[in-house]
């Protein structure tokens, strides 16, 4: 039985958090470790397109890229998933048949989350029925900021039910939660409600994913594991465009949760342009020559 007292969290020491993050960001990763790290980033990427102007053709191209990120280099792993709007799930499933790439769909009135609960549930069921193996839901920030934590919790539980076998990622949209304490509380609610992943952002709000916020999430899933034995993942989404930043996130994951979380099952990047920068750095490591962005396919 969950009661409102379960949503209480200790306050965040913002200065300690930011100092710790800044310290971890100074680690230098070179040569072989960098190459392995870049390959890990590719394998952890949810290649994403969430635009009003998305077309089946764009999604197909994105799926090919997620399956085989760089033509002529089969030694590079495939991405973890492709993330699209519900109406394009069918196209993605069709394009990825036979691959290891999962299809993730946003749902529950993404990105605002402002719709009636039954519409959110129907949205989720349709995406699952179309073949989505992962559902990225948004929490109701209006309810959360108004202090109606129970409502947020109930919604996540209902969506989790509607997902069935599909993995549920809970988008907290930390850019709208204003304070670190709120982020920690939202993590707690999503974990208690049974989310399989905590995700930072929709990518539609600035700031999107920041390192301190992801650090808070990592601490939350670590503590949740120590408390319950259940492993929950974290997805950093939005605003991560440089390979260097992605490697810093990996350092933070390892230092906070341990290397068990350095796995696409437990840590993901939600990104679109990040992949090309990672590929560019990867080729640069192999050839010693700085690369040209135009030489890498855009979609």
């Amino acid at each position: 039985m969950i009661t409102p007292t379960d949503f209480r969290v200790p306050p965040v020491d913002a200065i300690a958090l930011e100092t710790r993050v800044a310290e971890l960001a100074t680690r230098s990763i070179k040569k072989d470790a960098k190459k392995k790290g870049l390959e890990m980033v590719v394998a952890m990427t949810d290649l994403t397109t969430l635009e009003g102007m998305d077309t089946p053709g764009k999604v197909k191209a994105l799926c090919r890229k997620a399956w085989r990120p760089l033509a002529g280099h089969p030694e590079l792993p495939s991405c973890a998933a492709v993330c699209v709007y519900p109406d394009l799930v069918g196209t993605a499933v069709e394009s990825l048949r036979g691959s290891t790439v999962a299809v993730a769909s946003v749902a529950t009135a993404f990105p605002s989350g402002r719709a009636a609960l039954d519409e959110k549930l129907a949205d989720t069921r349709r995406a699952v029925a179309a073949g989505a193996g992962e559902i990225d839901m948004v929490i109701d920030r209006g309810a959360f900021l108004a202090g109606r934590y129970g409502q947020v919790f109930d919604e996540i539980c209902r969506v989790k039910d509607a997902c069935g076998e599909a993995h549920l990622k809970v988008i907290l949209e930390t850019g709208e939660l204003r304070t670190y304490d709120n982020v920690r509380r939202a993590c707690r609610i999503a974990l208690l409600a049974g989310g399989d992943f905590l995700k930072t952002s929709t990518g539609k709000v600035t700031p999107a994913s920041t390192m301190p916020v992801v650090m808070l999430m990592l601490e939350a899933v670590r503590d949740h594991y120590l408390e319950t034995g259940r492993l929950v993942g974290v997805k950093a989404a939005g605003g991560i465009r440089a390979a260097k930043d992605a490697l810093r996130y990996l350092v933070m994951v390892n230092e906070t949760c341990g290397d068990h979380w350095l796995d696409a099952r437990y840590f993901r990047f939600g990104a679109s342009s990040l992949l090309n920068d990672v590929l560019m750095q990867w080729v640069r490591l192999r050839t010693g020559v700085y690369q040209r962005p135009e030489d890498f396919s855009k979609d």
Binding site: G288, V289, Y290, Q291, R292, P293, E294, D295
Partner: peptide, 8 residues
Amino acid sequence: PQFASHRD
């Protein structure tokens, strides 16, 4: 040499 090899 870096000017010469940089692909961009």
